[in-house]
Design a protein around this nucleic acid. Structure first.
Lengths: 190, 190
DNA sequence: CACAGTTGGCTAGAAGCATTAGCTTTTTGG
DNA sequence: CCAAAAAGCTAATGCTTCTAGCCAACTGTG
């Protein structure tokens, strides 16, 4: 019998694609094994169980998201950069919902690449806010606020939580524009 | 053998409490049954499987959250109401993380009480924004923006997604203050 | 009070999942 | 070319949800 040619990376990528198709919560090792035409236990030679697979998918997706955000921010500043990064964020979540969901897992502290990817992603957002002249605690708070808004919108949207999906694009534009307003007139920290 | 005295409501409430303790994703029928000193299949006499239980917990939690938000908004207006509602929202998620997570499930269209609770919850937020003079599409967009921000912050916070939890209270205050600024100067819908 | 009928609990058992153990075959490297 | 490592396999365990079918305990109506 010829070998299937699995590697940790290959398994993670197939797992990520399947997660995008069926939803991260419905991703099973059985499904991944079936996609490779392989018995479930074989996957354990490459990945530390389901949890290990999810962690690898998370690392993969976080890195992808980080470069998407960094690419969007490149060569732009201010409101322009803000809108571009926000659109890239939502675009990634739409295109790869399973991967995006995996992104929410905390990086394993023993995985430097995963940690670095996470920092690159929030760094891309942080950089946009530096463009608004925010620094120190203000930049930290603003980054958290923008992350919250983007993540919250995307999650509610994907889950169908906004009810009838009328004008979601326009609502998102308004959300971003509102943050532009707030970042220009960032309130004092009392 | 005396009966355990289970009812759909009792089961849902115990399930909600357990979800708060162990996390919604770790809630199992086996755990609920054990808490009642009852065999797993007995629960099926009261609840349509695990999914039915989760749905009931969602309805329960949504109703609780809605009244918490409505109570917070009562007798307040403007920035005062905004801060009170935001604090109530975050407070509920902190106090009942499992229930809060259940809140994200879509209501069963055949469950009028669940649907009504959902509308009451977003209605409480909507009402606050009406206090800022926002109407029509603007109020809709602003409601979506505020929901996104609150939900996103709470989810990231509970998941530990903000890294070192330094000054989370202050960051949340800033997030709310920033929305106050944005609601006062709500951008035109181009 | 008696005695149906309904309800609420039970045991048994299926199917799907993750995971471990241990075996065999393929690939690789000296 | 052959030993060692790696990659696949089967078998088996334990946990889960869920269905089927049984029996005891309540309920209410004559």
């Amino acid at each position: 019998m010829p070998r299937a040619g699995l590697t940790p990376t290959v398994v993670a990528e197939r797992g990520a694609s399947l997660a995008d198709e069926v939803g991260l919560d419905r991703l099973t090792l059985a499904l991944v094994a079936q996609a490779f035409g392989v018995a479930q236990p074989s996957l354990y030679k490459h990945v530390r169980g389901l949890d290990g697979l999810l962690q690898r998918i998370s690392a993969l997706a976080t890195a992808e998201l980080a470069t998407a955000l960094a690419d969007a921010a490149a060569g732009r500043a201010g409101a322009d950069a803000l809108h571009a990064v926000a659109a890239a964020y939502r675009g990634y979540a739409h295109a790869y919902p399973g991967r995006y969901a995996a992104t929410q897992r905390l990086p394993d502290p023993a995985d430097p690449a995963h940690l670095a990817a996470g920092e690159r992603a929030v760094g891309a957002i942080y950089a946009v806010l530096r463009g608004y002249g925010l620094e120190g605690d203000d930049a930290l708070d603003a980054t958290r606020a923008l992350r919250s808004a983007l993540h919250g919108f995307v999650v509610l949207e994907l889950a169908g939580g906004f009810g009838i999906p009328r004008d979601l694009d326009a609502s998102f534009d308004q959300l971003v524009a509102a943050h532009d307003v707030a970042f220009r007139a960032w309130p004092d920290r009392t």
